[in-house]
Design a protein around this nucleic acid. Structure first.
Lengths: 153, 153
DNA sequence: ACTGAAAGGGTTCCAGG
DNA sequence: CCTGGAACCCTTTCAGT
């Protein structure tokens, strides 16, 4: 199930991660190949789902999203039904940018991006009214030191 | 310093976040406008830094990045010098996808994406050998429930 | 598997309303 | 500030090596 990129594939992925707006010609030159082979490789990796969504990174602060919270959640409920509802809630809430189920005594971690602390409280109230949660700790980010979606290929 | 997108700007940003590979014509149709005005708005927002990097989301699992850790860090050192070195280390390490300075008794949180637990340990050993850290808790992700970079515009 | 070329479509820019 | 069009560049495909 794992994909094993060769050297050229890996270089292509690095280039696309860094700047997906460049032309095929530029990418081909950067990886030391030419248009058609690069195009075929990209097409193959797209079809295989290795290359997914093409998107644009927006300046969250400039657009007024000034508060990021990491939310640590402990629950006492572990039935399938509770979990299904919890996951559906998280996926439906656009302010939840990341959600992970964890090993260990904290069960879930969320990354929540909102305009301000009040918006976080509204999210929090909505969440605990929809599903039973045993314990919540919110960590407020004061400064985003680093943020990337690039994999260290 | 905050940018106030009008309705059309906001629609354009939503479309670009969802799929930046579509043509200007398609985006213009989706937001109920036409090519030139949409092009001018995108150009303006790019120049202002509202629209940043254009990138591609890769399938981390398929490429063999099977372990994600959230790392909670407490430190006793708060001098400018220590902090400068710590930040430089984080920024230099490609396995660190996110790093935030926090309010409260946990000082930093990192999101670290690696191939396996052993690679995490190598990162951890390198980190603590470069900077003094008082206390570290690593939370291991068992399941990525949700992951998006889109802002809830 | 790569090269080169050709057709169609897209981006970018500009004149005019 | 929008419309429409023109020029140029890119993507996509295909035949040939």
């Amino acid at each position: 199930m794992t994909f094993h990129p060769d050297d050229t594939d890996r270089k292509i992925l690095i280039e696309l991660q860094a700047d997906a707006s460049r032309s095929l010609d530029e990418i081909a030159r950067a990886v030391g190949s030419s248009k058609t082979p690069v195009w075929n490789r990209i097409k193959r990796m797209r079809a295989a789902g290795i290359i997914g969504q093409q998107t644009v990174i927006l300046d969250a602060e400039a657009l007024g999203f000034e508060a990021t919270f990491f939310v640590l959640i402990r629950t006492s409920e572990h039935e399938a039904d509770w979990q299904r509802k919890f996951l559906a809630t998280l996926r439906a809430r656009p302010e939840v940018q990341e959600a992970h189920r964890l090993a260990g005594d904290i069960d879930y971690i969320l990354k929540v991006r909102v305009r301000n602390a009040r918006a976080y409280d509204q999210f929090y109230q909505a969440l605990i009214s929809e599903v039973r949660i045993y314990n919540v700790t919110a960590l407020l980010s004061m400064e985003e030191i680093k943020s990337t979606v690039a994999l260290p290929l």
